[in-house]
């Protein structure tokens, strides 16, 4: 109870400081919360940016495509690496080493190759989402207790049954976690791609508002994008919880 109160108090304090500081500085730089609300209203009533629904929908489609590709490739790649011990031991560390490169270095190449349209954003979202999924499959396979596989085989289970009845339930926890991280990173990849260079989508709108120093609109657009980001993660966490219940 006290904890919740203190949390809310902290939030109120933060907003108050923002309000006071935002009023003091140059209005082009600082936007007090009280100034964001009108901008947000104008945005949502499609007064300031009439193409908001189209942009939002484009960004969502980019995310969806990128994620579908990342899931397919991540699962496939992870299972191939996980099932073949030698291949896994050789490629696993290489995959991990690539993970040690800040992904954004690939973005200029993707932009060059795929152009400024949706394809480069999808490619970048895919790239970010792919790694956690593939690595989660690898980790999941590694954590399956070999004893369980031995027991299942001793009771006459074939490869397919072992996979479906033993491996999958045992690794599901890790796998679903990886799928969730993958979605978060896909969303981030698409948004980063849009902000670093695009002609349409939420990132383009944000860049437009920022370029014209319409700071109020900028903050409002950021809030809408945040809803998209948080919403996708909430969706993923609900699915995660379902999957967990299913394993128990």
């Amino acid at each position: 109870m006290t904890v919740v109160g203190l949390r809310l108090g902290l939030l109120a304090l933060f907003l108050a400081i923002w309000e006071i500081a935002g009023r003091k500085v140059n209005p082009l730089l600082g936007v007090p919360p009280s100034a964001v609300l009108p901008s947000l209203r104008d945005l949502l009533l499609l007064r300031s940016y009439p193409d908001l629904p189209a942009s939002l929908w484009l960004t969502i489609r980019e995310i969806g495509t990128a994620y579908a590709l990342a899931v397919a490739a991540g699962l496939g790649c992870g299972f191939v690496l996980g099932m073949h011990r030698l291949v896994g031991r050789a490629w696993g560390p290489m995959l991990a080493a690539l993970y040690a490169v800040p992904a954004v270095v690939w973005y200029p190449s993707l932009m060059l190759f795929f152009g400024l349209d949706a394809a480069s954003k999808i490619a970048f979202g895919f790239l970010l989402g792919f790694f956690p999924i593939a690595l989660a499959v690898l980790a999941g396979i590694r954590q399956v207790n070999p004893q369980l596989v031995v027991v299942a085989r001793a009771y006459g289970a074939g490869t397919a049954t072992v996979f479906r009845r033993v491996m999958l339930p045992a690794m599901l926890f890790t796998l679903v976690g990886g799928l969730r991280t993958g979605l978060v990173l896909c969303v981030i990849g698409v948004v980063v791609g849009e902000i670093l260079g695009s002609k349409a989508g939420m990132g383009a709108l944000i860049n437009h508002a920022y370029g014209l120093l319409r700071t109020g609109d900028y903050v409002a657009l950021v809030l809408v994008t945040l809803v998209l980001v948080v919403g996708s993660d909430v969706l993923a966490s609900l699915l995660e919880r379902r999957a967990r219940r299913w394993t128990e």
Binding site: L10, V187, I188, V191, V192, N207, Y210, L226, V229
Partner: peptide, 22 residues
């Protein structure tokens, strides 16, 4: 820890690219 952790997790999780223009 109890008061701050949701905020820390939130700040950790949100795409920081959104505040970059600012």
């Amino acid at each position: 820890r109890e008061v701050l952790s949701p905020y820390v997790i939130a700040f950790y999780g949100i795409p920081k690219i959104l505040v970059l223009p600012w």
